[in-house]
Write a protein that binds this DNA or RNA. Structure first.
Length: 987
DNA sequence: ACGGCCACTTA
DNA sequence: GTAAGTGGCCGTC
């Protein structure tokens, strides 16, 4: 090429940076918080991340050291989705979903951004960005220059070599040979071989079935490369592996072609022309101003000498973005600047004048810029230093804290240490009960030196942790609250980062600290299992060496503080402060106390039941073996399927997702109805087996040896809808349906001299629906105290409520439930055992009788597609980020979930309101009733015998009026409450 | 030892 | 058709 001759070649002094633009966009979009431009709501989160990274790289190179600045620089993009790889293998990247709607306009914007910073922007028809990067990297390296690829894409790792490095700026991670080895189990030169075997589900590279990265690395390390392996495949010992390697040899060869990057693309832009030129300040500032990135605008202006005020924001079209659609919402948001800066502590400088979104983003940007360095933390070993940390917390007015203990079960956990952080990057760990982890032989386990005596530490900490003017910030505070309360400390006031995240982002992903840290800080905290191990070899935290414990524990406090600074301002920007303050935060001590109280179970009774169940199972077992003509494992659906549909030749078996015979209760009951004897015995056996293993056998193991009671753990941030969940043990699914099951429930008993009171809302979800969808007939029926299912049947079929056929009522009941679940003809047909057509007719009739319900459903669907979330009557949000998927089945699923969420979630909100008020109302009435359990529409209390009559009305009153005064529900709520010696009779 | 699948339990 | 959690089996690590 003639141009190449006129430009000097690269030299050993040159440094070429190649930014993988396409993957950066996706990564930035998902990793960074969503951010929209102020005036029109144009999504610019990924653009912001990109500009910050680009500017940093241009300024500093890869390290802040001198001499590492790039001499050559380019951002490489994919041109279109079809490349030469699709000719080799049409399925390549075929299962890639379409990019999210709000990401599309950012593709063009990032190209604009690149040009605004005067950086070459390269893409080429028929080739992926990866191929261009491979080609440029090879050319530059051959000319002796240093090359750095900026990407997190593992597919580029094959390029790494002496001259070619790779860095993931989003995760602040440098990839060299050791990192490649860690990821693929081989060096960069063998990455292709491993990938061709392991395949890649994301890119739809097939590989060889049954071979993952681990096995692939093993094989390549043994045989050298793919072809040698395939040539010697016969010698592989493992049957399945050998067969697959032989059968799928050609598939592996195709895979190898797919993953091999093309290093000889006839590039249209020569590598030597990718030189760095000075940033044109006015041009860059114009772009940044147009985007509304105030922090970066200022920084770039300072560095380039451009006058911010003198530059007009750049004007350009953004394809795929409709401005008018978003104006209304944005205008509303702008008004809500209220106290967002104060919300997160130090509201410094200009923040007070910014809108909440901008505060939140500016905060995130600043915090991300401070590196998390787990070697920089302090181990506090003296009372004096601890006092200084507490003073610092009091001075600041807030402190992040975290406890380290001997157990994940807060009810059995002993305090081992505690960490504090008052500003990002600064944190300490206070070891209190670490013991010698090594010398078991010499009776190790002695308390290690240089630890503050527990009692002295608590004396220093207590005033600060209980100080009303110091906000304590924790991740999943309920745990720490339970631990600290046993040491006589009542933490207040507090914030919980897990609940903050749940409040603003429910449905977008988990709310655990590690996940939040990666999502918001781009930082992966030290995993617990790297400190304590896992499984059988797991050690308790008191055996962890103190320096290691400091790195882990102080990092948790550091990360928690950062998350708080990022998430707290979002309460204002997202209008979620009331939800957090009335439905989330106050639940922490309420649930903690319920967990602490626990509930009594009758151990003897459960043990007897286990015996009874075992006997019943044994009887059924022999009958089953007799009928089957052989013994087999009844608990194995696979073996059972072979007996029923293979050996016995019964036809009509359904398939499960994995293609195996379905042996679900539904299938077995259908077979029983056809006159087969075996299936119903299997169903009966399975029920007994479940009752025995999950309940009568397992529950006694949860009895706490100190309290003699069972303490469940409630998760506040586990569901998308706002419901709680219960685990270890799950006390929200204790049997009630069958006689045998109710025996389990009878084992939940009141303390001597007490009764259990169960108070449950009647039809709360249908009432909520009647209110939200504003259905006159339903509301009237609830006001008149009618049988709602009978009334539904009467409306639909015109039959009088008096003397109604129970089967007709049953059908109406199924439809009512179906409505709550986002009805489909398929589901209703399944439930009622009728045809899809009949079910469709029922639904049609229902919608004709209750047109408001149909309107409600359509409105919800529109909302979720437009906003990505739906809301409950109290403003809780449930997000469905994938609802706009093209897959019709998935789409319909998310739509049903979105229809259900406001109904289920509003009911959950009402329960939460009742729970938050309950304790005070009881104590005001001088009642000693204790709230023990919550089961979605039911609360269980333990009440002194003498107070039962006085307590019931109070409980009912609180529950029935739980919406007051925030909201006037247009249907009455009805609560039924009863007292008895055990849960079954109270229910 | 761990994870996916299937089955069962609840509201 | 919605929302959850647990236990046994069974294949992979």
């Amino acid at each position: 090429m003639s141009t190449q001759d006129s430009i000097p070649a690269l030299t050993a002094d040159d440094h070429l940076i190649l930014v993988d633009g396409s993957t950066f966009i996706f990564r930035a979009y998902h990793a960074l918080p969503p951010l929209t431009r102020k005036p029109d709501g144009l999504p610019v989160g990924a653009v912001s991340g990109f500009c910050n990274m680009l500017w940093k790289l241009l300024q500093e190179g890869l390290t802040p050291e001198e001499g590492d600045e790039p001499t050559h620089f380019a951002v490489i993009f994919d041109h279109s989705s079809k490349t030469f790889r699709n000719t080799i293998y049409p399925e390549y990247k075929a299962n890639r979903p379409d990019p999210p709607e709000d990401l599309v306009p950012q593709f063009g914007l990032i190209r604009e951004a690149t040009r605004a910073f005067s950086v070459p922007c390269v893409e080429q028809e028929g080739f992926e960005a990866d191929d261009l990067i491979a080609t440029y990297a090879r050319q530059a390296a051959e000319q002796g220059a240093k090359v750095t690829i900026v990407s997190g894409d593992k597919d580029l790792m094959q390029l790494i070599g002496p001259k070619v490095g790779m860095i993931d700026t989003m995760k602040n991670k440098v990839f060299g040979e050791p990192e490649v080895f860690e990821k693929f189990g081989v060096g960069p030169d063998k990455v292709i071989e491993v990938q061709s075997l392991a395949g890649d589900s994301v890119d739809n590279v097939p590989g060889v079935p049954g071979i993952g990265l681990k096995t692939a690395a093993l094989l390549i390390n043994e045989f050298g490369d793919l072809e040698s392996l395939l040539a010697q495949a016969e010698t592989i010992k493992q049957n399945k592996r050998r067969e697959n390697l032989i059968e799928f040899a050609d598939q592996a060869r195709v895979s190898r072609e797919l993953v091999t990057l093309k290093q000889d693309v006839p590039v249209e832009v020569p590598v030597a022309s990718l030189t760095v030129t000075d940033v044109d300040g006015a041009k860059a500032v114009g772009f940044l101003k147009a985007m509304g990135f105030s922090t970066l605008t200022k920084r770039v202006a300072e560095e380039t000498g451009a006058e911010v005020d003198a530059v007009e924001p750049a004007d350009f079209q953004v394809p795929g973005w409709d401005v008018p659609d978003h104006k209304g919402r944005m205008a509303e948001r702008t008004e809500a600047a209220s106290g967002a800066a104060a919300a997160a502590g130090e509201g410094a400088g200009t923040e007070g004048m910014m809108v909440p979104q901008t505060v939140a983003e500016a905060r995130a940007e600043t915090i991300r810029a401070i590196a998390v360095d787990s070697s920089a933390y302090e181990t506090v070993t003296s009372v004096e230093r601890l006092q200084e940390w507490c003073d610092a917390a009091i001075e600041k007015g807030y402190v992040a804290f975290d406890t380290e203990t001997t157990s994940l079960d807060a009810m059995q956990a002993d305090l081992v240490g505690l960490s504090l952080s008052t500003e990002p990057g600064q944190a300490c760990y206070v070891p209190l009960a670490h013991v010698d982890g090594e010398g078991d032989l010499l009776g190790g386990g002695g308390l290690l030196p240089d630890q503050i005596p527990l009692k002295d530490a608590m004396e220093v900490l207590k005033p600060m942790l209980e100080d009303r003017s110091v906000l304590k910030i924790a991740q999943n505070l309920k745990y720490d609250w339970l631990v600290m309360t046993r040491y006589g400390i009542d933490i207040a006031p507090y914030d919980d980062t897990m609940l903050l995240s749940y409040t603003v982002d429910a449905g977008k992903g988990g709310n655990g600290m590690d996940e939040l840290s990666e999502r918001w800080l781009g930082h992966k905290p030290i995993p617990f299992k790297e400190v304590c191990g896992s499984g059988k070899s797991m050690i308790t935290f008191d055996k962890v060496a103190i320096d290691r414990a400091t790195a882990y524990a102080a990092e948790d406090a550091d990360v928690t503080l950062r998350l708080w600074q990022i998430l707290k301002p979002r309460l204002a920007s997202d209008h979620m402060a009331t939800v957090y303050e009335t439905l989330e935060r106050p639940m922490v001590p309420v649930l903690a106390r319920m967990e602490k109280r626990g509930i009594s179970v009758d151990r003897q009774m459960l043990s007897r039941l286990s015996g009874d169940f075992a006997q019943g199972m044994a009887g059924l077992e022999s009958e089953i073996y007799e009928l089957a003509g052989e013994t087999f494992n009844i608990g194995s659906p696979k073996q059972l399927g072979e007996i029923l549909f293979g050996k016995m030749g019964i036809p009509g078996g359904k398939k499960t997702k994995t293609g195996a015979w379905s042996t679900s209760a539904q299938v077995l009951e259908d077979l029983a109805a056809e006159g087969h004897e075996l299936p119903s015995k299997i169903v009966a056996w399975r029920q007994l087996s479940k009752l025995k293993s999950t309940y009568s056998d397992a529950l006694p193991g949860y009895i706490n040896p100190e309290t003699g009671r069972v303490h469940t753990s409630y998760a506040l941030a586990a569901t998308t809808t706002g419901r709680l969940s219960s685990s270890e043990p799950n006390l929200q699914n204790i049997p009630v349906r069958t006689e045998a099951g109710r025996k389990i429930r009878q084992a939940f008993i009141a303390e001597k001299g007490h009764k259990l009171v169960s108070a449950d809302y009647s039809q709360i979800e249908l009432r909520v629906l009647a209110h939200m969808a504003d259905i006159p007939q339903l509301k009237k029926a609830f006001e008149d105290g009618l049988d709602i299912h009978a009334m539904t049947a009467s409306e639909m079929f015109g039959t009088p409520i008096e003397g109604m056929d129970p089967m007709v009522r049953r059908q109406a009941k199924a439809i009512n439930f179906g409505i709550i679940y986002g009805i489909s003809a398929f589901g209703l047909a399944n439930q009622l055992g009728i045809s899809r057509g009949e079910a469709g007719d029922y639904i049609k009739t229902y919608f004709e009788r209750f047109p408001g319900i149909k309107d409600y459903m359509e409105t919800i669907k529109k909302q979720v597609h437009a906003d990505g979330f739906v809301t409950t009557i109290f403003g809780r949000k449930a997000h469905y980020p994938e609802v706009n998927t093209k897959n019709p089945n998935h789409r319909a699923f998310y739509e049903r979930a979105a229809i259900n969420a406001p109904i289920q979630g509003s009911a959950a909100d009402i329960l939460r309101r009742a729970m938050v008020r309950m304790e005070e109302r009881l104590s005001d009435a001088k009642l000693d009733a204790q709230m023990l359990l919550q089961v979605h529409d039911e609360l269980i209390f333990e009440v002194p015998d003498a107070q039962v009559d006085a307590t019931l009305p109070v409980i009912r009153d609180v529950m029935e009026n739980a919406c007051d005064p925030a909201l006037k529900l247009t249907v009455p709520l009805q609560v039924d409450a009863r007292a008895a010696g055990n849960w079954d009779e109270a229910h």
